[in-house]
Amino acid sequence: RIQFTPDLMPADVVGSEVVDEDPKTGKRSFRFSAGPIFSNVVLADEINRTPPKTQAALLEAMEERQVTVSGETRPLDAPFLVLATQNPIELEGTYPLPEAQLDRFLLNPVIQYLPVEDEIKMVSETTGLDREEPEAVLDAEDILTLQSLVRQVPAPENVVAYAVGLATGSRPQAESCDEWTSKRVKWGAGSRGAQALILASKARALLAGRTNASCEDVAAMAKSALRHRVLPSFFAESEGLGSDEIIDHLLETISA
């Protein structure tokens, strides 16, 4: 877990070269001290509280699965996953993530409050003396196996075409974008959006015990895969519309 703060530096995330001195000979040499990015699962907590320079330290790691420091490239161990949280309130002193950074994230789920019954259970179980220690349910090899299985799930051509249609339909400059959308979108989803939508649909099908992804899977995952890739225009914001409402329109107007 990395707590992102305004004074966090890129070297605090990826690591840096430090000077070592041999106590016997006095000889000095550089040694690479790895940062917390060299983990299988990285939680970037309140990522929008750190400046863009530090946010950008994650770009190479998330896309290339490697880190370059002092001209030397070091691969990250597989599996490598980045989870991030953003503070939706107290926007003063925060730095919105640029579109290129947001595009690196596969999904952007919106976490709502728990149902009352579940919240009562959660509060009861976390405020007493006895607390259950979490147990590992998967190891690194299990995660790699599941990732491979997801990619093996077939996605018929019409399903891929539907996902690409939703992505291209969100781009104001595309011919397939209708007038309603072109007025309300400043920037639409790129090719990564369509890729994320298909991968998420395959995973959803696998979790449901099905052998192939369907258009229903694409529609179900559309908001999570596209909401951070569709940037509403000022006109949309003046109407009180956000990314979710624009994606709803795409789902209503683009046929599977």
Rank of each mutant, 00 (worst) to 15 (best):
E63A: 12
L76H: 11
A200H: 01
A196D: 03
A34G: 09
T168F: 14
V137E: 13
H228L: 07
S238P: 09
V153C: 08
A189S: 07
D142I: 03
W180R: 08
D130G: 14
L76Y: 08
G188Q: 09
E125G: 06
F32Y: 11
K121D: 15
E92Q: 07
T50C: 14
D22K: 08
E175R: 15
E252Q: 15
G93D: 03
E175M: 05
V185C: 10
F234E: 10
S182A: 15
A140R: 04
Q152T: 05
I198K: 00
A84Y: 05
I120K: 10
R49F: 01
Y162S: 14
V218F: 09
G169L: 07
D248R: 01
R65M: 14
R210P: 13
R184A: 11
F105G: 02
V218K: 06
D45L: 15
F30T: 15
Y162H: 14
V18D: 09
P88G: 00
N158W: 06
E46A: 12
Q66A: 15
Q147H: 02
T211L: 06
V42R: 09
E90R: 01
L59I: 01
L166P: 14
K53I: 02
E17I: 00
E125F: 02
Q112K: 12
S182N: 11
S39C: 09
T73Q: 07
F4A: 14
L43V: 12
L102Y: 00
K202V: 03
F38C: 03
R131F: 00
A57W: 04
L129S: 12
G165N: 15
S124M: 14
L138N: 05
